[in-house]
Nucleic acid binder design. Structure first.
Lengths: 147, 147
DNA sequence: TATAATTCCTATATGTTTTATAGGAATTAT
DNA sequence: ATAATTCCTATAAAACATATAGGAATTATA
């Protein structure tokens, strides 16, 4: 399962995408509309900003906004950023690989590994190529709008 | 990612399957051969026994054994037993469903949900139908052997 | 029948991660 | 100036995962 953090991130980002006309969106508005604890959300948005997904403006009338078109924000990046590996086992992870410590035979002969590699590939097959736009409720996002 | 518990369970079960000639297998042997903390493993095997996956015999020369042919032990049952849901979101879980608490619009219109349903289905597509036998290193398990 | 090897069971400890909050500094619009 | 915001670091609280303790019950067999 995704962590609460990852779920909050997804909902916050889709909210930002859906409110694209509204300029800078303050944390509290997102928190209220999507029922996310405000201070926790603050930490999440900070992280998304540092990862180059969001921009922000401090001060009165400030807030957060998407740095790129939702089509250019990869779903898989958000998931990895928040929760780490997509794979179910370290030994089949693309980005967080670690060797198996448990069994004596070599990895490339392991049937456990082979099957969990299939699972990982099936998952990536679905989510690679998916963007924030696919997660949003809007069909009518302007083709070139970035704040 | 799978918990250590789920990984230990998988490795313990495949070990039991691979040692099918050996009769009752004591906890300590599995723990040693698969480098699993013995007391933790004990709790896991107990749970698998209570779930009807394993049988056990107490006393000298006792130990654990598979109650069914490895072909009849479903991978997906083990995963759910150890770690709960296969799905990444509660609102798309088959066996652990919970409604979404975050957004205001109805579930059947939610694009987040739609995509995570795709992910779940892709995962299940791979693992449903897979059995312990598929996870084991043996190709030559007798067609009808049960202890 | 005594002994050793095992599972059984419940409780608890320990550690780690996740989730959440606190609080003040810096920034900005008006 | 003031108010509304982000920024940042620290910490608290809760939950969960991992691991261990220890004695009772069971069983084989010497």
């Amino acid at each position: 399962m995704l962590s609460a953090k990852a779920q909050y991130a997804i909902h916050a980002l889709t909210y930002l995408g859906e409110q694209y006309q509204a300029g800078y969106i303050p944390i509290n508005q997102i928190a209220e509309k999507r029922k996310i604890p405000a201070k926790f959300l603050e930490a999440i948005l900070l992280e998304l900003r540092k990862a180059g997904v969001l921009g922000s403006k401090a001060g009165k009338n400030g807030g957060y906004y998407l740095l790129r078109h939702p089509r250019e924000i990869e779903m898989v990046q958000i998931l990895r950023l928040m929760d780490g590996p997509i794979a179910l086992l370290p030994c089949v992870s693309k980005k967080f690989y670690e060797p198996c410590r448990l069994c004596p035979y070599p990895e490339n002969e392991c049937n456990i590994r082979r099957i969990f590699l299939e699972v990982r590939d099936a998952t990536l097959q679905v989510i690679e190529g998916k963007s924030l736009l696919d997660l949003m409720q809007k069909e009518d996002y302007p083709d070139d709008f970035v704040i």
